[in-house]
């Protein structure tokens, strides 16, 4: 079995002033390439301006707030999505270069590329034919 360098999930609830409201946990895909990890997270309703990404003490934090909310005149009829906040955190292993994480965000889907340090990348060994 190949050694898996997964980023361990950290299930945390957001510490919020609004105690009653638990943040939603965005579903993620984590995919490993030779160069690093690709993390995709579904955060519908969040815009680039309300997306908050940070790495602190080897923990990657994803946070976001839904921008569009119904006006005051709108009363709920049927509800599957509650709340406006998304939150999820992941612990990053030492093999990843936290300073070079790239992020793009489009139509509610966050894509992060978390590169491995050069030394961690698999090296191709060429077999020469004698």
């Amino acid at each position: 079995m190949a050694e898996r360098k997964e980023i361990a999930p950290r299930e945390e609830t957001v510490v919020s002033a609004r105690k009653r409201v638990r943040a939603m946990v965005p579903p993620v895909d984590v995919y490993e390439t030779d160069d690093g990890l690709i993390l995709l997270a579904d955060m519908p309703g969040v815009s680039k301006d309300t997306l908050d990404l940070k790495v602190e003490d080897n923990v990657l934090y994803l946070k976001g707030t839904i921008v569009e909310t119904p006006g005051e005149e709108v009363s709920p009829e049927y509800v599957e999505v509650r709340g406006r906040e998304y939150f999820r955190a992941f612990t990053l292993g030492p093999e990843f270069d936290q300073d070079k994480i790239e992020a793009t965000f489009s139509q509610g889907v966050l894509r992060l590329f978390i590169p491995k340090h050069e030394a961690e990348k698999p090296r191709k060994i060429e077999i020469k034919v004698a």
């Binding site: 709108v74 709920p76 009829e77 599957e80 999505v81 889907v109």
Partner: peptide, 18 residues
């Protein structure tokens, strides 16, 4: 899906990212 009702219209929010 969330559905809300205003006095003059019904609003449907379909959370379909990506």
């Amino acid at each position: 899906i969330n559905v809300g009702e205003a006095p003059d219209k019904v609003l449907v929010y379909i959370f379909a990212p990506g």
